[in-house]
């Protein structure tokens, strides 16, 4: 049984198709990478899975249960969404922003339990936010802000974490940090769908890749099967270096965090 399963998902805006008959499936403990050129429909697919927008056509189910049969609140507890830009309206402290990630688990007037607080603490440590916990969000650097946004989503302890380009604003070291956090999330049986532009990171961290092109799926499977020269040429209109030997110019790929 798939954790999340979508069939023939289609979305159009003002008569223009954005997604056309996309199938998607996600297993427990799996990290699925969504790749594809700008405008391929990756973000739209993610927002659709997050419940932010609705599909015009197609079926979407969570553990074989149609998504429509799941309440808004249960869905919020089980699926967390991390948008591309972390917009924060008010300069609240890091600690309070992260804590809000527990809200889907609380009744309107209920205070966080010791267990909730323990989870918040653990995530703050995991995301390396301790030094900033009292700082206002707007005083943080871009990388720190991205970690706060990720921490907020992790605190929800979702079965599925949907992350839209979580590393695009980060330096290589922090990119590796975030990708490591996402893979750790998968090790406890939870799953991640992540939109990435960096194909090397995608190949390195994701169990499976799904390549979107013009609103449809061009290829899906492991990195070898998806990142073929033919697929990449069709999707991105580029030729790829696959090994350092192929070129004379320096070729550097961040691979592992040192400390």
């Amino acid at each position: 049984m798939n954790l999340l399963h979508g069939e023939s998902l289609a979305v159009s805006r003002q008569g223009r198709p954005i997604l056309t008959a996309v199938d998607i499936s996600l297993n427990r403990g799996e990290m699925l990478g969504l790749i594809g050129p700008n405008g391929a429909g990756k973000s739209t697919l993610l927002r659709l899975l997050a419940g932010v927008i609705e599909a015009d056509e197609g079926r979407l189910s969570l553990e074989d249960k149609p998504i429509g049969a799941i309440t808004r609140h249960e869905r919020a507890r089980r699926i967390a969404y991390l948008p591309q830009l972390s917009e924060i309206a008010w300069p609240m402290s890091v600690e309070r922003l992260v804590a809000l990630g527990r809200v889907p688990h609380l009744d309107p007037w209920q205070h966080p339990s010791p267990r909730d607080r323990a989870i918040i603490e653990r995530v703050i440590v995991q995301t390396d936010l301790q030094p900033f916990r009292q700082r206002a969000f707007n005083t943080l650097s871009g990388g720190e802000q991205a970690r706060v946004a990720l921490a907020r989503a992790l605190v929800t302890e979702p079965d599925i974490l949907l992350a839209d380009e979580p590393v695009s604003a980060l330096d290589p070291a922090h990119q590796l940090d975030v990708m490591t956090l996402l893979s750790e999330h998968c090790q406890s049986g939870q799953s991640v769908i992540v939109v990435l532009h960096d194909l090397s990171l995608a190949a390195h961290y994701c169990h499976r890749l799904q390549l979107l092109h013009q609103g449809g799926t061009l290829a899906v499977g492991n990195a070898e099967a998806v990142l073929t020269p033919e697929n990449l040429e069709m999707a991105y209109a580029i030729a790829m270096n696959q090994t350092p030997e192929e070129t004379q110019s320096p070729f550097r790929l961040p691979w592992r965090r040192l400390s």
């Binding site: 927002r47 419940g51 808004r72 969404y81 917009e87 008010w90 809000l100 809200v103």
Partner: peptide, 13 residues
């Protein structure tokens, strides 16, 4: 929750 923007708030229930 609206602090995070409307879409994130919607995803949070």
């Amino acid at each position: 929750l609206l602090t995070f923007g409307e879409e994130t708030a919607a995803s949070m229930g």
